[in-house]
Design a protein around this nucleic acid. Structure first.
Length: 278
DNA sequence: AAGTGGCTCAACCGCAGGCGG
DNA sequence: ACCGCCTGCGGTTGAGCCACT
């Protein structure tokens, strides 16, 4: 026998929320809180919605202090840094970006940042990316075509999970600990058996780091932000801020050390990784 | 102006883990 | 120890929008 459904699908409304539904939900929670029971909440308010749907609507849209719209460069930097370190732990990443929801970050990553990181958009003013993509493709998979503009199979996050030991419950706890010791530099390497495009990314990333001697050491290791049980360590916010500041030493946000690219062009590492033209 | 394809993002789905009985 | 309920999370979907032809 399968799992019992969380709600009666025949009577539950699905799809976009109406302003009236939003108002009902918001008014009730503002006054009474969630009561710790999302499943019972829709009946109390008289909404024909699944409890999970109410929770999602509240967390992603109605909750106070939610930020919508464009992400700042700083936010992009944080997302990229954390994704490289811990993979698709959107809730953890969202915890570092006040006002942003995991869903927002996930969407932003999937629709924009991933494309930037995977080199869909060549950095401005040099031909390195295209040439390297062909070279990487040939080196990693000689029988494959050289097209780089392809769907991402498997997942970068599976690769991260594999590297971090997240494949099993026991490995999960160990993985959280090992996460914090992993620098961007240590991300590159072989022998983990992850997907083709992920290897391609690593190859390109490694090549860029090698091109820029100043960045040879990568960014500093991310400090421990999580306990093995997944809760935040004491002072996690402060540790993270300190780490971000130390990253700026290696990855200047403005000016500072520049990557020397083929053809004499230069740009800083963050801009290269994020694909900024300027 | 109409058709088409790509992109965005809100919402859904299913799974895993926590917790209380 | 086991079971069932609930919550939280990450992956996926699809409607609507927009740019291009």
């Amino acid at each position: 026998m399968g799992r019992a459904p969380c709600c009666d699908k025949a009577t539950v409304k699905k799809g976009p929320w109406s302003p009236e539904e939003d108002a009902k939900l918001k008014a009730y929670i503002d006054e009474n809180g969630t009561g710790g029971n999302w499943i019972a909440l829709p009946q109390k308010i008289g909404l024909k919605r699944c409890g999970k749907s109410c929770r999602l609507r509240w967390l992603n849209y109605l909750r106070p202090n939610i930020k919508h719209g464009d992400f700042t460069e700083e936010e992009e930097h944080i997302i990229c840094s954390l994704y490289i370190s811990i993979g698709s732990r959107w809730s953890i990443i969202a915890a570092q970006l006040p006002g942003r929801t995991d869903n927002d970050i996930k969407n932003y990553w999937n629709t924009k940042l991933k494309k930037k990181l995977l080199g869909k958009r060549a950095p401005h003013g040099h031909s390195l990316a295209a040439a390297d993509v062909v070279e990487a493709e040939q080196q990693l998979n000689p029988s494959a075509g050289a097209s780089y503009d392809m769907p991402v199979p498997g997942s970068f996050e599976e690769r991260s999970a594999s590297k971090l030991g997240f494949g099993s419950p026991a490995g999960e706890a160990a993985g959280v600990a090992s996460t914090v010791e992993m620098s961007s530099g240590s991300m590159v390497g072989a022998g983990f058996g992850y997907g083709h495009v992920d290897e391609l990314y690593d190859f390109l990333y490694n090549k860029q780091l090698a091109t820029a001697g100043a960045f040879q050491g990568g960014v500093p290791p991310l400090p421990e932000l999580q306990c093995p049980d997944g809760s935040a360590v004491v002072g996690a916010d402060e540790k993270f801020s300190t780490w971000m500041a130390s990253c700026d030493h290696y990855v200047p946000t403005t000016g500072g050390q520049q990557l020397q690219l083929q053809g004499g062009n230069s740009m800083n590492l963050q801009d290269f990784v994020l694909g900024y033209d300027q």
